[in-house]
Amino acid sequence: MRRETLLNLVIALALLAVPLAAQALDEPFAITLATKVAILALAGVGLNIALGLGGMVSLGHAAFFGIGGYMMAVLATPVQAYEPLMTWPIELAGTKSMPLIWLGAVVAGAVGALAIGALSLRTSGVYFIMITLAFGQMLYYFAISWPAYGGEDGIAIYVRNGFPGLNTLDPLHFFALAYAVLLAALWLAHRLGGSPFGLALAGARQAPARVAALGIRPYRLKLAAFVLSGAVTALAGALYADLNRFVSPSMLSWHTSGEIMVLVILGGVGRLFGPVAGAALFILLEHFLGGISEYWQLFLGLILLGIVLFARGGLIGTLAGREVPHD
C-alpha cells in the first residue's frame, strides 16, 4: 500500500473515531467540531477539483458555499412560516427534507458556477483570481442589500432539516450524514482524477497548448470542472447552514473563500485527502489558539506564512512525501 493511501485511511478513521469517542465520553461539542471538519473538508474537496485538478486559483468559492447555504434558507423558510415557496407560475411548497435541499443546493451551485466560470475562464492567471474574488464579493453585497432573507443580519432556521430514517437533531446522526457525504465526494474526486476527463483536465492544466493540439478545448474542460467544483462546495454550504441552523452574508464573504483555500493548502493542494487533513488542522488551530488568545488569527497568519514559505506540499506532503506519479 502506498504511504499516502495508508495516511488517507488513518485520517478517515481518525475523523470517524473522534465523534464516536466523544459520544462515549458524553462530549457533544467535540462531535459538532468533527461535523464542522467534515463539512469544511467537503467544501475543500469541491475547491480542490478546480484548484488541484484544474489549476484554477478561484478566490470566490464562498459564492458557491453561500449559494448552497441560502438555497437551504430559501427552501426551508416557507415551511417555517407556513407559506408556499411560490404561487406563480406554479404553486410550489418549500421543503424541510435534506435530500431535496441538497439537490436544490447542488443545482443552484452548478448554475452559479456556470455563470461565473463562463465569464472568468475567458481569462487566466492573476486576472482569474481577481475576477472570481470580485464576483464572490458581488453576491456578498447582493445578499447584504436584499432584504428578503434577512439582509445583513442573516436568517435563522429554528429546526434542523430532516433526513428519512435519521434524527438529525442528534449530533452523532448529523455527523454520520456529513461524513457519508464527504466520503461520497472523496470517492467522486478520486474517480474523477483517474477518468479520461480528469486526465484531460490535468493535461489542460500542465500544457494547454498540447491539449488543444489534440483537439480538446481546454475552456470547456475547465468550465465543466469549475461547475462540478462549485456544485460540491454548494452542497457543503447547505450542510453548513444546517449545522448552524443559520445563514448570513458572512458565508459569502471573501474571508470564507480565503479560509476554504487555506484549508486546502494546509492539507496539500491536489492531494485527495488534503482538504480533510487541512480542515482538521484548521479547526484544531481555531479551537486551541482561540482558547489561548483572542487574537488567534494573528498566530494563524504566522503559521500559514511559515507553511507557504518553508513547508510546501502541506500536511499530506510533509507526512507522505512528494506526489507519486500515477502507475
Binding site: 484548484l51 486559483v57 488569527q297 494573528l298 497568519g301 504566522l302 506564512l305
Partner: peptide, 17 residues
C-alpha cells in the same frame, strides 16, 4: 500565484489582528 495569494492572505490576518 497560488503561493502569493496565500502568503499575502496570511499577511492580512497578521496585519488585521
Amino acid at each position: 500565484h497560488l503561493d502569493q495569494v496565500l502568503a499575502t492572505f496570511a499577511l492580512i490576518l497578521v496585519f488585521s489582528e
